[in-house]
Amino acid sequence: MFRSVLRTNAPMALRRAAPIAVRVNAARFMMPTRNYSAANKLTNDAVQTRVLSVIQAFNKTNSVADVSAKTSFHQDLGLDSLDTVELLVAIEEEFEIEIPDKVADELKTVGETVEYIASNPEAL
């Protein structure tokens, strides 16, 4: 019975398939994708807040009250290369990313780190 119904309606179903599919796709697949990106798009402010939390949890720094985007890890926070290894791993853990060697060498300030994370689509 179902076979005959399907056969009977098949040509009509095919003719109508395209526009319906477009509408269904738009509703079911495109919208959630846009919502997904919107929901997971990390703003610079949100990233900065979390980066500051990571820095604050770091033993070397007592307060982040004076920390801004321009704050340098080495010159302002007094972090050396060994501290930087630990801080980078803490940031990688926080955002579930792996910072490439070259980028790690280039991240000298809080602002540069925030920008890199905010522009990294893998960052959560």
């Binding site: 060994l82 290894v85 630990e86 980078l88 791993v89 990688e92 853990e93 790690a104």
Partner: peptide, 30 residues
């Protein structure tokens, strides 16, 4: 020159019972 207690602290903070993930993330760097 390295102040060894700093390395001890780094390892201590990176080691979780039964899980080497964080330790591996740290040592992968160098």
């Amino acid at each position: 020159i390295v102040y060894i207690p700093r390395i001890a602290g780094l390892l201590q903070r990176s080691m979780t019972k039964g899980d080497t993930r964080k330790l591996q993330m740290v040592i992968n760097k160098f």
